[in-house]
């Protein structure tokens, strides 16, 4: 049956979906560079602090085949806690992340994929991060997987959803109105492909805003990037290329040294070439909207 086409679309779309839930979140990750003497942004949690966040959003994906559109809409939601276990000599934070809640719902013309995530709720993994938000080391995360079902790409590591728990902060002090640029480049395995991303971003410190009683700096980030990947999936050779634009707004509680809120939109246009045993080229677009919010700040001292 030709669910081959459709199912493969679903499989590929889910793969790309997951890819972009990741990159969508990644666009929240700051590409913050430098400015002259201004605010010095650092994470400043203390040992014993517990921060709880939610990330929610949606991904609208559209593929085209033989003049027909195949649309998929994914809603995702996760809630997680970061516990600061210790701060080491290099001032890095040794943390434990607990997945408090998580849901993913994929809606397509072919039906709804609603993977059962109950088994990963409550799971914990370790993460070491620098005061500037660099994620240095993960531990115990690879064994936590989400099963999207046979048609939607099987098992996916949950790591993709927690890759940007911390935000990269500018190394130099920044002042209101300052703009700076940054470049981010990484290669990561995704859905059977090695995906290479290059992202150029422009940042601007817009001003102050109070969020939940915390004095925050509002920062806007606009990014443009490319994604290229190739690999194999279900016996098919895949090549992927996409162009990505993102726009994010951030709120960082500079006194407390916490990320409080972030909203991010991204748009990607891409082509997937699939070869053997069937050849096809699938154009697609993907729009991602996501929001992150601190819901449970650490106890005031």
């Amino acid at each position: 049956m030709n669910s081959k086409n459709r199912n493969r679309y679903i499989a590929i779309s889910s793969m790309i979906l997951l890819l972009f839930i990741l990159w969508g979140c990644a666009s929240q990750k700051a590409f913050w560079g430098s400015a002259d003497s201004g605010f010095i942004l650092n994470y400043r949690m203390e040992k014993g602090d517990i921060l709880q966040y939610t990330i929610s959003g949606n991904v609208n994906q559209s593929m085209e085949m033989m003049g027909q559109s195949i649309d998929t809409k994914t809603d995702f939601l996760s809630k997680y806690s970061i516990k600061i276990n210790d701060i080491n000599q290099q001032k890095n934070f040794l943390t434990t992340i607990t997945i408090d809640d998580m849901s993913i719902k994929v809606n397509s013309q072919q039906g709804v994929i609603n993977p059962d995530l109950s088994s990963i709720i409550g799971k914990k993994f370790g993460l070491t991060a620098s005061p500037k938000g660099k994620e240095l080391e993960y531990s115990g995360v690879d064994s936590i997987t989400i099963n999207m079902g046979q048609m939607a790409g099987g098992k996916q590591s949950v790591k993709n959803y927690f890759r940007d728990v911390f935000t990269d902060l500018p190394k130099k002090p920044v002042k209101i109105g300052d703009t700076w640029t940054s470049k981010d480049e990484r290669t990561e395995p995704q859905g059977g492909m090695q995906v290479h991303m290059v992202m150029d971003a422009k940042h601007k410190l817009l001003g102050y805003e109070e969020i939940d009683g915390m004095a925050c700096l509002k920062i806007e980030t606009k990014g443009k990037g490319t994604l290229d990947g190739s690999g194999e999936r279900n016996g098919a050779q895949l090549s992927f290329e996409g162009d990505l634009e993102t726009k994010s707004t951030w709120f960082f509680a500079y006194k407390k040294g916490l990320l409080v809120k972030a909203n991010s939109d991204s748009f990607m246009e891409a082509t997937i070439a699939v070869s053997g045993p069937t050849d096809m080229t699938i154009p697609m677009t993907q729009e991602t909207k996501s929001g992150l919010k601190l819901i449970s700040p650490p106890p005031k001292k």
């Binding site: 290229d228 290329e241 070869s275 050849d279």
Partner: peptide, 12 residues
Amino acid sequence: LMRISPKGGIPL
């Protein structure tokens, strides 16, 4: 026209 020229994918 792709940046990384794929092995196949020639539309049939």
